[in-house]
Amino acid sequence: MLKLFKSIKVYKMQALGLGLLRWVLIGGICYIIIFPVLSKLSSSFMTIPDIFDKTVMWIPRNLTLDNYRFAFAEMEYPQAFINTLVLTLTISIFQLLACTLIGYGFGRFNFWGKQLFFALVIFTLIVPPQMIMIPLYLNFKNFNPLGLLPGGGINLLGSFWPFILTALSGTGLRNGLFIYIMRQFFKGMSRSLEEAAYVDGAGPLRTFFQIMLPGATPALIIVFLFSFVWQWNDYFFTNIFMGSGSQLLPIMLNDLIYQIDPSLRTTAYASIINNTGSLLFMAPLLLLYAVLQRYFVESIERTGLVG
């Protein structure tokens, strides 16, 4: 009996020690993850002397909102925000629609050449966008598929069309991954509901929209969130397709420090402005994540992301 008590005590000590170790680890990792946000937040309220003041670590001595005023005005924030939001929403909705349909095709049907076509999806994921960047740029500059358009090609650069066309055909930014996620999800769904719908005479599209889609909500949320976030953050394609003069947030943010008067443009000041701009840039994403995170974290587990 005494021995039993002793072993329970040892177990308790062990559990306590492990729990403590776990929290130290988790705390440390969380700190490293949150650190850049905190450091940005703190420096965005600083004046230049504060940066070099060794007694100032996190809390600035001279709180100022000037950095925000400057970044807000130079990024033309309200207009650029609306432009970016419209672009990103359009693209991510189209990508969601296309990748869901394509993923459904791969996940629920057995047709000739399916394995081959799916291998092509994976292939689009592996090839870096840099490789097809220049041909894509030239093709959209002089858009004329198979020479079908009369009177030579049309210039689609500077419009949403390059984004829309690639999104609708599931070849946009990392769309291979979205197709993969949707395929895995639909593969795991039960057959009986679908077959009942077919027996009752529903067509394939109707079955898809009324029966399969509502059940796929977790996967839809994940694909939408990824697509939105990556499109919002994307500088690469935005710069190539829309041009460096367009009024969009990633481009405005990239150019922000060059708007500073050259006589004031020290490394420290440029860094403060950069951090402030980055915060303004990220704020909508953080807000979206805060709203969707519960669904996000929970649905990840239910998507069968891993098959």
Binding site: A98, L101, I102, Y104, G105, F106, R108, F109, N110, F111, W112, K114, F117, L120, V121, T124, V127, I132, L136, N139, P145, L165, T166, L168, S169, G170, T171, I179, Y198, P204
Partner: peptide, 20 residues
């Protein structure tokens, strides 16, 4: 219905040919 799947992935085939 198995061949119907081909219609679902048709957009990807177009996109793959033209934009990839």
């Amino acid at each position: 219905k198995s061949w119907l799947g081909f219609y679902f992935i048709l957009p990807f085939i177009f996109g793959f040919l033209f934009f990839f």
